[in-house]
Design a protein around this nucleic acid. Structure first.
Length: 870
RNA sequence: GCGGGCGUGGCGUAAUGGUAGCCGCAACGGACUUAAAAUCCGUUUUUCGAAAGGAAGUGCCGGUUCGAGUCCGGCCGCCCGCACCA
């Protein structure tokens, strides 16, 4: 180990930080090895997309993970803290299209830059496990597992409706469709049917829902969001008989899904999706309906449009027979609000008890018959016109106008209808989920190739595992719209692995969410020949603490949970849940400024003068925008490199952890950063002064005990705070400890015992802050004369004799209002306390002339004297 | 529309149902300095008071409790998620 050459003159982060980073690397401090004799701790932050440079959000995220990693390590855990790159995706391809750079070069260049930036933060990461998802050595396992998924029945290929950009020749995600137009091309987006690959996540809908209960270390909010997303509902599917306008029975029936079978007597129409087979069939010889279908398709898929669109329908000219009332016929419409993808793509409308149905009924002059009403209401006069009656929680409602259901409650009526449907065989109880199967095909180059071959004789043939990976060709051009893999002269032409005849590769690539659905497991054995090594994964998994943005609450986290189950089923993993504990951190936000002309102005160019903001150069008046998430477009981004260069990584880390609770948005301020920087200097001064003191043992002498108590109690509370990810509290405890050391240092005549306490306090201060400011801690530790590095030093424990409390100050209240306080031994009981408080002058005054009712004594908490006026 | 969360000094925040405002930022006063910066010491919820000492106070109204920032009910405001899911 080389001499680190510490001097006490100044703290120079520019020299110190790289020095200790090299030290940690050279000594392989953070390289994790399986060791069954020690408890493991796997801490993981959501890995970054290599977009170019790290931003403050990364700094915050990785600092939190790093504090946990270093803290757990000091506590004796065998810590795994890896880093990698979510490296496939559209921005690389866009860079290629816009600037003629190859996606691969662009991506790996970005990775190199960002790796350097992350290293400058001094993260305790095992870099030997690093990989990028665009490495063929990673995605080949993804391909192999996909083939296993096919064998296991977890994959389906089917035609589905997609948003198609006719100019860019590609499928767009819903978020990429803006006002019905492609976000890049501006072309009007079409709906098109394409054969797509799907992963059957719906097979696990119930399990994914049920298992949420066991994820008790996940935020309730995320669990609830997933629950709503899975969207389980219990209802019935049943079939109406259909007839034409002349009353002639048709061969087809109409099967609908409903959760409100109790309202069947209030039904006044049926509606099907315009994509429903019945609608398509009739449209073939009904031009009006065909026009309607086109109109619905042209509306696009943007949610905004859907929300604004008027409820519209087109009569099909057929009628559904009411299942219980043989003379009642319900007109059937194709309607723009019926989703083909949910239930049966068909429903019956009960206008009296559904807002959407009543809107539709009013438009097409259909009856509105209430069938549920508050118990005791006058049935004859209970009428509804524009607002449906919706039963509220706890309200006592019963069925009316409903034949054999009259007088039953909603749940009784549901049960009765269900029994009758089941008895006659026209319907059955059904559970439906909102969750859709996961479409994983993307018509993109920069993604993992889907490892199948299309053979005109053999059909779809998986690529044999021995031929994996199916590597992306590098010699592609982006001169034409669409997927370059389709235009590549040779790549897609292969022989069928089955019959050896000429065949074609699948040119679609995987959704990048697949890449990020199992990377955490690959980190357990990143160089293994199998996707996941069973011994390593058994030891390291699940991830003990996962940290990332709440924006991934649904997709990434749900896909990962599904993927673990799919890997379990195919023998790749021995667990179902990837992340035992989840933490979602807040964003980094910053003030914004706008010029009179409406242009965003850099916050660093805004100066506050005489109560108004002006531009530092032009003097132009500026308006203050909101405090918002850092974004390039609003020009309120702060570059971590600049901050680290100016103040050092420790200051940046400290600021990202302090003041604001980690789950909330934190505002970046220059003043806050300077405050953090000043504190690093203050620590350095304090430690330098302590280091100049002679060596002296910590004793229990009275002059030492006061400070020693602070040190030891701080250790206890910081341990608790870090175990619970309350970084902001841990930091305020560090401030308190340094505030206690300052005055003690300033005392002119220090006893030997006091010096011992000070030296101990210095040690505690350094060790306790080390997870947050690791470089400064190492430098201080060295300065204090310790031979071993902080990184190899165990976490300090508070001694019981110093953390124990002997005396307590209890508040003394009169009628709940604080009047005085009293110092008593810990555990003092009523008999001891009562006489004491009644002797207090302030209490005597407060209860004078009143009648004493009782005295509440809660030992070690409070005393409350209850008095009345008479 | 449905679901969830949050309202505490000038600001960020703290407070197992038990002395509201720890800690930080900012501001102000003082020390050091030729001066400034840095540093150190102090003040800083509002209000009455010279002081001692009072009074009010955690968005608003009510409830439970000896005691409510915290629990319950109802409003008001802000934020987030989902959104034609039959």
């Amino acid at each position: 180990m080389k001499d680190m050459g510490v001097t006490a003159e100044r703290y120079n982060h520019r020299e110190t930080e790289p020095k200790w980073q090299s030290f940690w690397t050279e000594n392989q401090c953070f390289e994790a090895k399986e060791d069954p004799s020690r408890p493991k701790y796997y801490v993981l932050e959501m890995f970054p997309y290599p977009s170019g440079r790290i931003h403050m959000g990364h700094v915050r995220n990785y600092t939190m993970g790093d504090v946990i990693a270093r803290f757990r390590r000091a506590c004796g855990y065998n810590v795994l803290h890896p880093m990698g790159w979510d490296a496939f995706g559209m921005p690389a391809e866009n860079a290629a299209i816009e600037r003629g750079i190859h996606p691969k070069g662009w991506t790996y260049d970005n990775i190199a830059t960002m790796r350097g930036q992350l290293k400058s933060m001094g993260l305790a990461i095992d870099w030997s496990r690093e990989f990028a998802t665009c490495d063929p050595s990673y995605y080949k396992h993804e391909q192999a597992m996909f083939i296993d998924f096919i064998t296991a029945g977890l994959v389906e290929r089917r035609v589905s409706l997609v948003n198609w950009d006719p100019v860019d020749q590609t499928v767009l995600a819903n978020e990429q469709v803006i006002d019905g137009k492609g976000w890049r091309s501006g072309a009007v987006v079409e709906k098109r049917e394409l054969a797509q690959w799907f992963l059957k996540i719906t097979d696990y809908a119930q399990d994914l829902l049920d298992a949420l209960d066991g994820l008790d270390k996940w935020p309730d909010k995320v669990r609830l969001m997933q629950k709503n997303w899975i969207g389980r509902s219990e209802g019935m599917t049943f079939t109406f008989e259909l007839e034409d306008a002349n009353g002639k029975k048709l061969d087809d029936g109409l099967t609908v899904y409903t959760t409100r079978h109790d309202t069947i007597f209030g039904a006044s129409f049926c509606a099907v999706s315009s994509e429903h087979p019945l609608s398509k069939k009739i449209a073939a010889h009904n031009p009006e309906l065909e026009n309607f279908r086109k109109e619905v398709a042209a509306l696009g898929t943007s949610e905004e449009n859907i929300e604004r669109a008027e409820k519209k329908g087109c009569a099909l000219g057929v009628f559904a027979r009411h299942p219980f009332l043989k003379d009642v016929k319900l007109p059937v419409y194709a309607a723009n609000f019926v989703l083909m993808g949910y239930g049966e793509g068909a429903l019956f409308g009960c206008p009296a008890h559904d807002q959407r149905d009543i809107d539709f009924a009013n438009k097409y002059h259909l009856p509105v018959l209430p069938v549920v009403a508050p118990r005791g209401v006058d049935v004859a006069s209970f009428k509804l016109t524009t607002e449906p009656y919706l039963e509220k929680d706890g309200e006592d409602s019963v069925l009316i106008n409903s034949n054999f259901l009259d007088g039953l409650t909603v749940s009784q009526a549901k049960e009765e209808v269900a029994k009758r449907f089941e008895a006659t065989g026209i319907g059955k109880r059904t559970v439906n989920f909102r969750l859709r199967d996961w479409g994983v095909s993307r018509q993109r180059y920069w993604g993992c190739p889907i490892p199948v071959v299309h053979c005109k004789d053999c059909g779809i043939v998986p690529v044999p595992k021995s031929q994996l990976p199916v590597e992306l060709p590098e010699d592609v051009k982006f001169d034409k719209p669409g997927n370059p893999l389709v235009h590549h002269p040779t790549w897609k032409h292969v022989n069928c692995p089955n019959c050896n005849e000429a065949a074609e590769r699948e040119t679609d690539t995987f959704d990048t969410f697949i890449d990020s659905s199992w990377y955490y497991a690959r980190f357990a054995s990143p160089h293994d020949a199998e996707p996941v090594n069973p011994v390593a994964s058994k030891y390291w998994l699940p991830v003990d603490q996962y940290i990332g943005g709440v924006e991934h609450a649904i997709l990434h986290l749900l896909y990962s949970r599904f993927y673990a189950r799919a890997m379990h089923k195919t023998g790749h993993l021995d667990a179902d849940e990837p992340f035992a504990s989840l933490f979602t951190q807040g964003m980094v936000i910053h003030e914004t400024f706008k010029s009179a002309s409406g242009e965003w102005v850099l916050p660093s160019d805004a100066v506050h003068k005489d109560g108004a903001w002006t531009h530092i150069k032009t003097g132009e008046a500026l308006s203050v925008g909101g405090v918002e998430k850092m974004s390039k477009s609003k020009r309120n981004v702060v570059d971590p490199d600049t901050i680290i260069a100016a103040y050092g990584a420790d200051t940046a880390r400290w600021f990202m952890l302090s003041d604001t609770p980690p789950e909330r948005d934190i505002e970046w301020t220059e003043a806050g950063a300077e405050g953090s920087w000043r504190f690093t200097q203050r620590i350095w001064r304090i430690i330098s002064e302590i280091a100049d003191l002679p060596n002296s043992p910590a004793s229990m002498d009275q002059s030492a005990v006061v400070l020693r108590r602070v040190s030891h109690r701080t250790a206890v509370s910081i341990t608790d705070d870090l175990n619970n990810l309350r970084f902001n509290r841990a930091i305020s405890r560090i401030y308190e400890l340094s505030n206690a050391i300052g005055p003690a240092l300033a005392t002119a005549n220090k006893t030997t015992d006091m010096i011992g306490a000070l030296r101990e306090a210095g040690d505690f201060l350094v060790l306790l802050m080390a997870p947050m400011m690791p470089h400064l801690a190492e430098e201080c530790w060295k300065l204090l004369g310790h031979g071993e590095a902080v990184v190899n030093t165990v976490w300090p424990k508070g001694l019981a004799e110093l953390t124990a409390v002997a005396e307590m100050t209890l508040a003394v209240q009169v009628n709940g209002k604080r009047r005085d306080e009293i110092l008593v031994p810990k555990g003092a009981d009523r008999d001891m306390i009562e006489p004491l408080v009644l002797e207090l002058e302030s209490i005597k005054r407060a209860i004078e002339g009143k009648v004493l009712k009782k005295i509440i004594v809660v030992p070690d908490r409070i005393v409350n004297i209850v008095v009345t006026d008479e």
